[in-house]
């Protein structure tokens, strides 16, 4: 952790939001365009790592009170659930469904169950990345 990193702190306050937004964009683009849960998750994790780097782990741990192992488990459960749901409806495991809907404001958009799977992956990747980085970082203390 750096002391007196005013410029880093100032920029990362803004940059973190842009990166997080972009990661969500990737998540939604994922199932039929470049992107996806994995890359989105990595990007979100990099935003969080930027926060940890510029403000220090102690400060950020007070703000982000997420139990990362639980986050990994939740993500895995979501991803598995999308596979199991298709079994319940009598299709093979992991069969994906999609349908077009009309949303207010957004207009016509496609929704796919692949997105849910990707959301699970998104959470797992964030959880694993941050957990690994924090575990190594806290080793110094």
């Amino acid at each position: 952790m750096m002391k007196n990193s005013l410029s880093l702190q100032t920029i990362s306050r803004i940059a973190v939001f842009i990166i997080l937004l972009f990661s969500v964009y990737f998540l939604f683009a994922g199932h039929n365009n470049p992107g996806g849960g994995f890359i989105g998750g990595l990007m979100a994790a990099s935003a969080l790592v930027l926060l940890y780097l510029s403000f220090g782990t102690k400060k950020i741990n007070k703000v982000i009170r997420i139990n990362f192992p639980y986050l990994i488990a939740t993500g895995l459960l979501i991803a598995m659930a999308t596979g199991v749901i298709s079994v319940i409806f009598g299709y093979p495991f992991l069969t994906q469904f999609y349908e077009y809907f009309h949303f207010p404001l957004l207009g016509k958009a496609g929704l796919a169950t692949a997105l849910l799977f990707d959301a699970g992956v998104f959470l797992v990747v964030i959880g694993v990345t941050i957990l690994v980085i924090l575990t190594i970082a806290e080793d110094d203390d």
Binding site: P69, Y70, I72, A73, L76, L77, M80, G83, V84, V87, P92, F93
Partner: peptide, 24 residues
């Protein structure tokens, strides 16, 4: 198609994930 084949793969994975919540 036989979804039965899936059970030996999905059951242990599901249990493994659930166990993460009760680690202590």
């Amino acid at each position: 198609m036989n979804n039965l084949l899936l059970l030996p793969v999905v059951i242990p994975m599901f249990i493994g994930v659930i166990l993460i919540f009760f680690v202590k």
